[in-house]
Design a protein around this nucleic acid. Structure first.
Length: 671
DNA sequence: CTACCTCGAGCTCA
DNA sequence: CTCGAGGTAG
């Protein structure tokens, strides 16, 4: 039994330390010296060493985990993590507001005087913090919005994240993790000394730091946070506005960015936006725009969500950073289906946090539209902050030596005589010979990829080696690779070869949809392949169908059906197909169109089931011929509601759609 | 698209 | 140590 004085002292010490942590890291207003703070921490450590039973995971001494993790566990979000749609200018803003007003009118909430809460959009990574009875229990990355990664151990090391709230409520709070510019410079100068790669920007550094399995490394880099949203709250009152949420978050002990403004109309928003464009670079953290939210919670709820994003908010992005660089060359790339894409080779240039040395020019028409010539200086930006995009040519810098680009009539990478043709009805050119080496290479990459045969460990380089050594010329060859042949290649030793052979063997069984996709029929990707598989059910039927018959299938239009028929007319393709069919086993997985007991039914899943993950449940439904959709409509047959079902359940009730519990669902799909 | 982390494997040299 | 693959993030 620990003496009463000790526990009292211990609790007081913890409280004091936490208070000063808050003053220092959250309010940025320290009231005692670092050394005094350290002394307090030290006393806590001493007590804990003597009385280990006192230690809780949220003690200030436990911020750094001493055992590195093996891996990050997946965490399913209790509340789906949406992201806002982007807008880029005042026009977009106006359109968005009109939509909001129209919707509000329809939902009879328009009489509330509408206002908008404008916050900074911090350039970092999203984090979802879960508290039970006021104690931090988990922290997750966003992931795909449904499932993220458990990074609790790393988040604990961030001093501005409270491990205990000021009130014992159940809460899910959402915010952004970021790294300040000075800290990036410090980390990079250390990495320079040790010869490590430097981080390209604060966001990448923050992302890299969060993905460390060893939280000691995370702790050594001073990450920071801004928390901006409450997703869930029990044990307290949810404020009726976004601004109120921010205030509550502050009160609970979170670090909240104080630069927010409630605007009454979009003119005011625009003013805030323009003033931040001028000021954004002066901050310690990266800002990539404003987030505009309808302030009233009641109106937010009335507006609801589209399939993709909340209707009640948008991300108003700052204009993309533009730089100039020189087009050193224009080269042609041959894709999987023989389509030729011109790509500008650029003098490498740093833009929006990464070095860009190439940008797609899409097609001949785009080259003409831009009138881009080799040697031209061009303005470059990243579309949606991701994909490099040439905006325009700086014609005033022309010297006259620039070479206009002539789209060639022959492309050597197309193999054979190199002839190319314009695809009827499209802007793209493609190789007449659809099996050129370049196209073949791409097809093989795709064939083994996750979307198709999903052969683990067969990346592009391995495929290249196999192609170059003529070990594969046809898809079927992958399945008949010989151990000895592989071992003869450089960098292929026992272990690698065994792994390759094993993953090939494992991949022999495929679903029909994956099989169809793997053929690289032009226009037939993952989606259409699934439609074909669901509605037709066998490769033998597909190969004998006419264009008209194919077109009657939902999701297959005149262009795709033409491509399909043409593909199956080609003798080479047929030979490839038959050889491949002899090697693989297409999983029957219950035939869908007629045999499937769920055919014609449409399902929406919500909440968590005990027995199956969402993906497994989807596979089961599709396997039985049913459709799975993301949002509930009057065409939905059943909504399957697991634990913690959310808004989809409410919507189902509103529309009178039948709702199944997990056990009812299991009964229905039982074979 | 680019940057980052982590892992397994092969190669190289002590 | 280096390379390739695979995964994650924005």
């Amino acid at each position: 039994m620990v003496e009463k004085e000790v526990t009292e002292r211990y609790e007081k010490l913890k409280k004091t330390v936490n208070h000063h942590r808050y003053l220092y890291y959250v309010l940025d207003n320290p009231q005692i010296s670092d050394s005094a703070y350290d002394t307090l921490i030290h006393e806590i450590i001493e007590i804990e060493e003597k009385y280990p039973e006192l230690v809780t995971p949220n003690s200030p001494t436990q911020r750094v985990g001493d055992v590195p993790l093996k891996e990050f566990k997946k965490i399913k979000h209790q509340v789906p993590q949406w992201s806002f749609d982007d807008i880029f200018d005042y026009e977009d803003l106006k359109k968005w507001e009109e939509k909001v007003l129209r919707m509000a009118e329809k939902e009879n909430v328009a009489d509330k005087s509408l206002s908008y809460c404008c916050e900074l959009k911090i350039d970092g990574l999203k984090v979802i913090l879960t508290y039970k009875k006021g104690q931090l229990v988990s922290a997750a990355t966003r992931g795909d919005g449904e499932i993220g990664e458990d990074v609790t151990q790393n988040i604990r090391t961030i001093q501005s994240v409270p491990t205990e709230l000021t009130e014992p409520m159940d809460l899910i709070a959402v915010g952004e993790i970021w790294l300040n510019k000075k800290e990036l410079a410090r980390i990079n100068s250390e990495r320079e000394k040790t010869g490590e790669q430097l981080f390209a920007n604060t966001r990448n550094a923050a992302a890299g730091t969060i993905r460390q399995l060893d939280s000691k490394i995370t702790a050594s880099r001073k990450l920071d946070t801004f928390i901006y949203d409450i997703d869930y709250l029990v044990g307290g009152e949810l404020p009726d506005s976004q601004e109120g949420e921010l205030e509550l978050l502050s009160k609970l002990g979170f670090k909240v960015n104080q630069d927010r403004k409630v605007c009454k109309n979009i003119e005011e928003i625009q003013k805030v936006y323009e003033s931040w464009i001028k000021r954004k670079d002066r901050q310690d953290f990266g800002i990539d725009g404003l987030v505009i939210k309808v302030n009233s919670r009641q109106v937010q709820e009335a507006l609801g969500y589209t399939a993709k994003s909340p209707r009640w908010g948008v991300a108003y992005k700052f204009p993309a950073e533009q730089v100039t660089t020189v087009v050193e060359d224009i080269v042609l790339q041959v894709g999987r289906t023989g389509v030729i894409t011109p790509v500008a080779q650029l003098r490498p240039v740093l833009v929006a946090g990464s070095t860009v040395s190439r940008a797609t020019l899409h097609n001949e028409d785009e080259i003409k539209r831009l009138d881009v010539r080799i040697g031209d200086t061009v303005i470059l930006q990243k579309a949606g902050d991701v994909i490099p995009d040439i905006v325009e040519v700086v014609t005033s810098l022309r010297t006259g030596k620039e070479k206009p680009y002539q789209f060639p009539e022959f492309v050597s990478a197309c193999g054979g005589d190199g002839r190319i043709e314009r695809v009827p009805g499209q802007v793209a050119y493609r190789c007449v010979d659809k099996n050129s080496f370049a196209a073949q290479e791409r097809k093989f990459y795709y064939f083994v990829s996750k979307k198709c045969f999903n052969m683990d460990g067969l990346g592009p380089k391995i495929i290249d080696a196999l192609l170059e050594n003529n070990l594969i010329t046809d898809y079927a060859d992958i399945f008949t690779l010989k151990r000895g042949d592989l071992l003869a290649l450089p960098r292929f030793a026992e272990k690698s070869v065994d792994n390759i052979l094993e993953s090939v063997a494992k991949a022999r069984k495929v679903t029909l949809a994956r099989f169809i996709a793997s053929l690289s029929i032009p226009q037939i990707g993952e989606e259409t392949a699934r439609d074909l598989s669901d509605k037709i059910g066998s490769i033998e039927k597909i190969r004998n169908m006419t264009e008209e018959e194919l077109q009657s299938i939902e999701g297959v239009g005149p262009i795709s059906s033409r491509e399909i028929v043409e593909w199956f007319k080609d003798k080479k393709n047929i030979k490839t197909l038959d050889r491949l069919l002899a090697q693989v086993e297409i999983e029957k997985g219950e035939q869908n169109s007629k045999g499937g007991k769920l055919s014609g039914m449409s399902f929406v899943l919500t909440g968590t089931m005990e027995k199956y993950s969402r993906d497994e449940a989807k596979d089961i439904i599709r396997g039985l011929g049913g459709d799975v959709n993301e949002s509930v409509s009057k065409n939905t047959t059943y909504v399957v509601a697991g634990e913690n079902a959310g808004s989809k359940l409410e919507k189902a009730e509103k529309l009178g759609v039948k709702v199944l519990t997990e056990s009812q669902f299991l009964d229905l799909v039982k074979v």
